[in-house]
Amino acid sequence: MNVLLSLGFVLTWSSGFIGAKLGAGEASAVTTLMWRFLPLALVLAAVAATVGRRWWRGLTRRDIGRQIVVGALSQSGYLLTVYYAIQLGVSSGTTALIDGTQPLAAGALAGPLLRQYVSARQWLGLCLGAAGVLVVTTADAAAVSGVAGWAYLIPFLGMLALVAATFVESRSPTRVEPMAALTVHCATSAVVFTALALAAGAAAPPTAPSFWLAIAWLVGLSTFGGYGLYWIVLRRRGLTQVNALMFLMAPVTAVWGALMFDEPFGVRTAIGLALGLTAVLVVRSGGTRRRRPVRASGHAPSRQGDRTSGRYS
C-alpha cells in the first residue's frame, strides 16, 4: 500500500508542473490559479457544510488559523512561484528540479524543529538526490535559451514556502481531517488568487477549450491527487521519507515534458533520474533517529497525538 501511495504521489504531484504549462499557454499565472481554486473551493465548502460536518469536530479557531497559514504557504505561495517561473519560460522539468532541493532544506531543519534526526545513510541518499537534481538542472538550462537568469531563482522561493508549510503542519498538536484541511487550503488559495487576478485585471477566463482542459487536469490530478497524497504520505511515512520522493519529481516531470512539449531529455537527464531513484532507495532503507522529550515523571510521552515524526498514531 505504501509503495502504491508513493507511486501515485510522484505521478500526480509531477502532473502539476505539466498542468501549469498547459495553462500558461492560454492565460496568466494568476488567471489560471484563480479558476483552478475558486470553483473547487465553492464545491468543497458546500460539501463541508452538508455531508462533511464531522470533519470539523473538535477543531478550534486556532486549528483552522494554522491550516490557513499552511494553505497560504503550501498552495498560494508555492504554486504562484511555480506558475510564474513557467510563464517566464523556465521549462517544467527545470522548475521541478529546482523544487527538488527541498529535501536538503527539510532534512537540515527536521532535527532542531521536529526532533526527527536524519541518519548518516539518509544524508547520503539526500546528497545523491541533490547530485541528480544538479545534473539534470545544468543539462536543461544549457538546452533552453532566452530565459532571464533571475527567473531560475523564483522556484526556490516556492520550495522554501512548501518547506515552511510542512514544518507548521508537522508541529500541529491536533489531528485535522484531510478533507477539512483541503477545504481550508483551497478556500485560502481561492481568496488569494481571486484578489490578485482582480487587482491585475486578469480575472476573466479564456474561452479556449484547452484552458478548461488544463483546469480539469490541475483539479483532478494535481489538487486531489498530488496535494492530497502529499499530506497522506507525510503522515504515514514521515518527513524525511516523503521528501526523498521529491527527488523523483524532476526526472518524472522531465519525461512528461519531453513527451508532451518536446522539452529536452538527454543522457544527463537519464543519469539524474537514476541518481534520484538511488537516493529514494537509500533514504527509505535508512532509519530516522528520533529524540523524544521525557516528562518530569520520567515516563516517555504517549504516542497519542504525537506528530514529531510526521505520522499520526
Rank of each mutant, 00 (worst) to 15 (best):
L160H: 09
L160E: 03
L160R: 06
L160C: 15
L160K: 11
V163W: 14
A164R: 07
A164N: 08
A164S: 15
E169K: 13
S170W: 05
S170N: 03
S170T: 00
S170H: 00
R171A: 07
R175I: 07
R175Y: 08
V176F: 03
E177I: 04
P178S: 05
M179V: 11
A180H: 10
A181V: 08
T183C: 03
V184T: 08
V184M: 03
H185F: 15
H185C: 10
A187Q: 06
T188V: 15
T188G: 06
A195T: 15
A195Y: 07
L198N: 08
G201W: 04
G201Y: 06
A203G: 06
A203V: 12
A204H: 11
P205G: 07
P206M: 09
P209Q: 10
I215S: 11
A216S: 07
W217A: 02
L218D: 11
L221W: 09
T223L: 15
F224L: 14
G225M: 09
G225V: 12
G228Q: 07
L229G: 03
L229V: 02
I232C: 05
L239P: 08
T240L: 05
N243M: 13
A244T: 04
L245E: 02
M249T: 14
A250E: 00
V252L: 06
V252F: 02
A254E: 01
A254P: 08
V255T: 04
A258F: 03
L259P: 09
F261N: 01
E263G: 11
E263S: 02
P264L: 05
P264A: 08
G266F: 06
A270W: 13
A270K: 07
A270Q: 12
A270C: 13
G272S: 13
G272C: 09
L273E: 04
L273M: 11
A274K: 05
G276L: 00
L277A: 13
A279I: 04
V280A: 12
V280K: 10
L281S: 13
V282W: 05
V282L: 13
S285R: 15
S285A: 15
R289W: 13
R290G: 02
R292A: 12
R292S: 04
V294L: 08
V294D: 00
A300E: 14
A300T: 12
P301T: 13
R303V: 12
Q304Y: 12
R307L: 01
